[in-house]
Computed example of a mutant assay.
Amino acid sequence: MSSNHGWSPLTSGGLFWLIIPLLLSILCYIVAWRTQRKRGPEEASDHINNLGSMTLEEAYLIKARIAELEFPLIFSAATNAVFFKAEAIPSIAKLVSRAAQRSTPRNGPGATPLDLLGRPGAPATKAAIDRVNYIHGFYRPSSKMSDDDLLYVLSLFALEPIRCIDRFEWRRLTALERRALATLWKALGEALRIPFDRLPSDEEGFDDDALKWLSELEVWGREYEERHREKTPESVFLGEKQLDAWVRGVPRFLRRWARGCVAVLIEPGLRQAMGIETPSTLAIVLVQTVVSVRKFIRRRLYTL
C-alpha cells in the first residue's frame, strides 16, 4: 500500500505556485504605481492650464514630487552644491571664507534651502525666510553682500536642480516642472527682498510668466559668471575645504582617486576658478559610464 501525503505548499510544485502569483502581484502593483506617477504630472498640467496661472501651493506640490519622490538624490545634491559654485565669485568667496575661518557663528543659525522651499505660508517657512532676512541685514547695508551677488545665488538655486536633472537623470524636466520651480524661487526672491531690476522685463513686469523670469535670470546669471568668476586665494581655500568634506568618508588610500571622480562632475570653468586639478581620462570614462548606466537602469525601471 503506497502512502500518499497529498499536496503540500511546501513541496517544490506547491512552492512554485505560491511564488509566481506573488511575483505577478508585485509586478502589477509596480506597473500601476508607476503609471499613476506618470499620469500625475499630466493631470496637474491640465488642471493648471485650465486655471490659467499656477499658485504657490500647486508649484510646491510639483516641487515636492520632483525633490522627494522622483529625483531626490540629484535635486538634493544640486541644491547643496549651489554655494560651492557661488564661491567662484570673488566677493562671495571672500565673505564665505571669513565665515568659514571663524570657530563659531556670529549670528545664530541660518536656514537651509529646504527650509526656504517649505510649504508656502507655513509658519516654518516664514520663520526660515525671516532668519535669512535677519542675517542679510548684517551684510547688505555695508555692501559686503551686494544685490547682484544675491540675485546670482538665487539664479543658481533656481537653475542648478534643473541643469543637474537634465544632465544626470533619465529625462529632462517638463515645462510645467520648470515653471513650478521658477514660481517658487521667484516668490522666494521677492520675500528675501532681492531686486530683479537687472532683468530686462522687470520694469514692465513678468505678468505671472515664471518661465520668462527664469529665462532672463539664466541669461543674466551666465553673463555675471563670465564677468566675475575668477580664481582667488579664497576660492581655492573653499574649494579644497569642500573637496575634503566630500571625500571624507572614503578610505584614505582611495581619496586622491575619489577627488578625481568628484572633479569630473564639476564643470571645467568652475574647476579652474576653485583651483581643482583636471581629472584623469580614466576618471572621466569611469564617471561617465556610471552616469550612463544609472540613467539606463532608471529609465528601464520607470518605463516598466
Rank of each mutant, 00 (worst) to 15 (best):
T278M: 13
W7T: 11
H228Y: 11
T112N: 06
R106E: 10
C261P: 01
I135R: 09
W185C: 01
V219R: 11
R271C: 05
C164A: 12
K212N: 12
L18A: 13
L173S: 04
D115G: 06
A78P: 03
R227A: 14
S97G: 15
F157T: 02
D244C: 00
E160D: 08
L27Y: 12
I20Y: 05
S215E: 15
E226W: 07
L188E: 00
W213I: 06
E230Q: 14
G110F: 03
M274Y: 04
I266K: 09
T281E: 15
E218Y: 11
F157W: 11
L265Q: 07
L159V: 02
S12V: 14
L301M: 10
D209W: 04
L199A: 09
V287R: 07
V291H: 06
P195M: 13
G110H: 01
A175Q: 15
N50C: 09
G239S: 04
L238V: 07
F296R: 14
D148K: 11
E240Q: 15
N133H: 10
I62A: 04
L156W: 03
S25D: 07
S155C: 10
A175T: 14
W33I: 07
L23W: 06
G260A: 07
E203G: 04
R222P: 05
V219W: 05
L117Q: 09
V82D: 00
E277P: 00
E177F: 07
A122H: 14
R227Q: 14
D46W: 12
I62G: 03
R163L: 10
R172S: 13
T104M: 09
S146I: 00
M1L: 10
L69E: 14
R34K: 15
L69R: 10
F16P: 00
L24C: 13
E58G: 07
Q242M: 11
G6L: 15
F157K: 00
L150A: 01
F138A: 08
S215I: 01
L27M: 10
R167V: 06
A64W: 02
L254S: 11
V96K: 04
P251V: 06
I20D: 02
D207A: 14
S235F: 12
W213Q: 02
Q36I: 09
E240M: 10
V219D: 13
P161Y: 02
A258Q: 07
T35G: 07
R255D: 07
D209C: 02
P21W: 05
S142G: 05
L69A: 09
F237P: 05
A187F: 04
L150G: 00
Y134H: 15
N107Y: 15
M145R: 08
L114M: 11
W33V: 13
T232D: 08
